[in-house]
Amino acid sequence: MISRRHILLGSGAALLSRPAPGQTVADWPHRPIRIVVPWPAGGPTDIYARALVKEIAAGISQPVVIDNRTGATGTIGVQHVARAPADGHTLLVANVTAMIGSVVALGDVVQFDPIRDFAPIGIFTESSSIIWANPRLGVRSFREFLDRARDSSRQRIAFGTTGSGSVSEQSVEQLAREFRLDLLKVPYRGTAPQLIDLVADHVQIGGADYPTASPHYREGRLVPLLVIGPQRLPELPDVPSFAEIGLTEPDFTVWNGFFAPAGTPPPTIERLEAALVTASRSETFRAVTNGNGNRAILLRGQDATARLARDLASRQAFARQGAASG
């Protein structure tokens, strides 16, 4: 639910979006472009954003810089862009957790509307996260994990999350609900710090996509338990998916997208879309966003907005179900 205070803030942002005297939309960009990433440096969204910047900066006359504004499950960075002048100089690269999951989990605390307050430039990659275990937990499969988690004579298993509404949190909470597990939740500000503690055995399980966690997996520092999605990954053919254990809703696919504040002039959006299309065809960018558990996609305009609306409705239904069962 969006508060009246938020509606008033949104009206103020619309006034700020007008070009300064003497400037026109055709002048864009007339100062450095700041791309806000609401997660720490080194995490998957940050990696995608930096790859995108490399590709679009060549065709833009101003510097393009990354601004990591972290905290509150990504909402601090997202809210900053929602309130920014809609002139094409403050943009956002964010994932489904920051744009959708946080809104569902935090409710009125969140002062933005993911659909009304943003103009999608494009959703450009999606992936299925994986639930990983530290080898010291002593489990090598999901079934072994269930047996260990149900053993009340042993210490509770701690699971790392990247905040309220994140896939890592909601997926493990769904497991705990469906299989009646008593787990200890430990929140982090992003995937990168969560993985550090998972590898160090400060938490025993956690969620991360394959590209981010695979270096630790190849070195034997992580064990994959479950793919959080409808099907197995080619990179992990022996690891079952959520669908295989009977968990099909909601869709926990993780996407990353490129957004501008609502009200950004259409010619500016068109130029940004063209830059994203060019980037999506680049071998360098595709090497980061396709393969290793990722799928390069390109949803623009109404298609991107429809994806946001669908995921918002799905997560809201999941939250209502959890509240009813609790």
Rank of each mutant, 00 (worst) to 15 (best):
V139A: 11
V139P: 02
V139I: 13
R140W: 00
S141G: 01
S141F: 06
S141Q: 04
F142M: 02
R143K: 11
E144H: 03
E144C: 01
D147C: 00
D147I: 07
A149K: 06
A149N: 03
A149L: 01
R150N: 09
D151Q: 03
S152Y: 05
S153C: 00
S153H: 08
S153G: 04
R154I: 02
R154Y: 01
R154N: 00
Q155M: 03
R156E: 02
R156Q: 13
I157K: 03
I157E: 04
F159K: 01
F159P: 00
F159W: 07
F159N: 00
T162E: 10
T162Q: 10
G163P: 05
G163S: 03
S164R: 12
S168E: 05
E169T: 08
E169Q: 15
Q170V: 00
S171L: 04
S171Q: 05
V172T: 15
E173S: 09
E173A: 05
E173W: 02
E173D: 14
Q174Y: 04
Q174C: 06
L175V: 06
A176L: 04
A176S: 15
A176D: 05
D182K: 13
D182V: 09
L183C: 01
L183G: 02
L183N: 06
L184S: 13
P187M: 07
R189P: 05
G190Q: 09
T191C: 09
P193E: 06
P193R: 09
Q194S: 11
Q194V: 03
Q194K: 08
L195V: 07
I196S: 14
I196R: 15
D197P: 00
D197S: 14
L198Q: 04
L198P: 01
V199I: 15
D201S: 14
H202W: 14
V203Q: 12
V203H: 07
V203Y: 13
V203E: 10
Q204I: 05
Q204N: 03
G207V: 11
A208N: 12
P211R: 15
T212G: 04
T212Q: 14
A213H: 04
A213G: 14
P215T: 04
H216F: 15
Y217K: 01
R218K: 11
R221H: 12
L222W: 01
L222K: 11
V223I: 15
V223S: 01
P224E: 12
P224L: 08
P224Y: 06
V227D: 09
G229I: 07
P230N: 10
P230Q: 13
Q231N: 14
L233E: 07
E235L: 12
L236D: 10
L236W: 04
P237S: 12
D238C: 01
P240N: 02
S241E: 12
S241L: 08
I245H: 10
I245V: 15
I245R: 10
L247H: 08
P250T: 13
T253F: 00
T253L: 09
V254T: 14
W255S: 14
G257V: 12
G257Q: 05
F258K: 11
F259Y: 15
A260Y: 07
A260I: 07
A260K: 10
A260G: 08
A262G: 09
A262H: 10
A262E: 13
T264Q: 05
T264C: 11
P265F: 07
P266A: 14
E270H: 15
E270T: 10
R271D: 06
